[in-house]
Amino acid sequence: MNVPGFLAAAGVECSKLVAQLKVRIMFVACLAGPIAFAVAMRVQSSVPSDTLFGRSVTESGFAVPLVVLGFAALWAFPVLASVVGGDLFSAEDRYGTWKTVLTRSRSRADIFAGKVLAALLFSLLSVVTVAVSSVAAGVLVVGPQPLIDLSGTLVSPAQALIRVALAWLSVLPPAFGFTALAVALSVGTRSSAAGIGLPVVAGLLMQLCAFVDGPEVVHRMLITSAFVAWHGLFVESPYYGPLVYGTTVSGVYFVVCLVVAYRMLRRRDIGG
């Protein structure tokens, strides 16, 4: 694999993604969703009090991105992380275009790395878009008031913004882990439905497992635990153990899924 080849392949994948309607719709939803949520909270009289920071959603604009983050961790991130990664490889099977892209001046490693980079870029941009949109919506619709953290301590707006940014940053490793899982399923099954749908189902099953008593080691192996590791940032004495552990577990998912996916693609015969 050489760097120009890998970057050329990533550029081609990004050009294809930009041309797809579903990708544009996803970004519009990522941008508009948090704004619609903030406006709805501002207009209605009740607040989502059973959600973390739900009670503060009309008192500090910095609570809005945290409520959105809590919701997205449960439902949206597995979808956002899989929607491109789970389709990039199987789409070549659907269109029959493997023989077209693999008979050019790029190796399979270049094509694989380019596609993975494009999928990771999409996951990164979608998470950043939701984060920026929800922070902007909170500050503009509710206001930049200080935030009361989980210990009941008042946090200054500047400090709250830093912690919100760190919280959103902390969900990138598990999001990338889900993207890698989607890539492996897309390569292995050659089906976009499986590539996108199975990671979402896996995410839901992991959430269910987290609610059930079971061996600690199983709970610790759940990549979804990393989506809620940011809670430790919003106490008087922040703790980072779950963040480090969650990032490590995400890294293991990422590496194992991508190695398996690459081996499958490398050994595959492109038949008729």
């Binding site: 077209t100 008979t103 015969d269």
Partner: peptide
Amino acid sequence: TAGPLPDGVAGCVETPAFYP
């Protein structure tokens, strides 16, 4: 099958496929 096709070599196998 993992490497790139050498420069100067090209081919068209059965019905060609493209991104629709």
